[in-house]
Amino acid sequence: MIYHGNRFTIKPGIPQEQLEEALESLRNQGRSIPSVKHFVVGRDYGGEYEWGAMFAIEDLDGYWEYLIHPTHARTDRLGLPLVDKFMSYDITDDLDPEMDAKIAALHQRRYDSDAELTQLISDLGEYTGSAAPGPHGK
């Protein structure tokens, strides 16, 4: 099982309605992407982030389905422009010593095929985590 998580902080001054729409879009990912077995979206406590989401996905094929699903793309387009600081991470019980490289390769494949997404990620104030290309020049 792969647990894919996101932690993020919203830019100051973002209207509450926009935030709620983005959070609901995250929840919709959990409801609509077949490979997502369980999910949670909510407040992030105990750190420097305000919000978080966790998606349980069975394997790498399911992870790829999650990454390229239209509801995930919709969340990226709605939510990333609202975000200042973002972290993604993965926890897995799979003992494959190459799992980190395999997950990173999936993310890189997605970035390579989606220039708009790559630009949205690059425009973030800070992005660390699962194969994050990071903000260019920041």
Rank of each mutant, 00 (worst) to 15 (best):
S113D: 11
V41C: 05
A56P: 00
A104F: 11
D94N: 14
M99I: 15
G129K: 03
R74N: 13
K85G: 01
E17Y: 10
G62W: 02
Q29Y: 03
G42I: 10
H69G: 07
I14W: 01
H69M: 06
E17V: 15
G13D: 12
I103C: 11
L95F: 12
P70G: 08
E50P: 00
R7T: 08
G79V: 03
H72Y: 08
T71G: 01
F8D: 01
R7W: 13
A104P: 00
E21M: 13
E17D: 15
I57K: 03
R110P: 00
S25M: 07
R109Y: 08
A115E: 15
G134H: 09
E50S: 04
E48W: 07
H72F: 06
H4N: 07
G52Y: 05
Y89N: 10
I103V: 15
T118D: 08
V40Q: 12
A101P: 00
Y111P: 00
H136F: 14
A22P: 04
A131Q: 05
F8G: 02
Y3F: 13
K85Q: 11
G129H: 05
P135K: 08
Y127M: 04
Y89G: 14
Y66T: 09
R110V: 13
A53C: 10
K102A: 10
T75G: 10
G137I: 11
D90A: 12
I91N: 07
E98H: 08
L67Y: 02
E21P: 02
T71R: 09
D90E: 13
R77D: 12
D90V: 12
P133C: 04
M87R: 09
S130L: 11
D90N: 11
P97C: 05
D96E: 04
P97G: 06
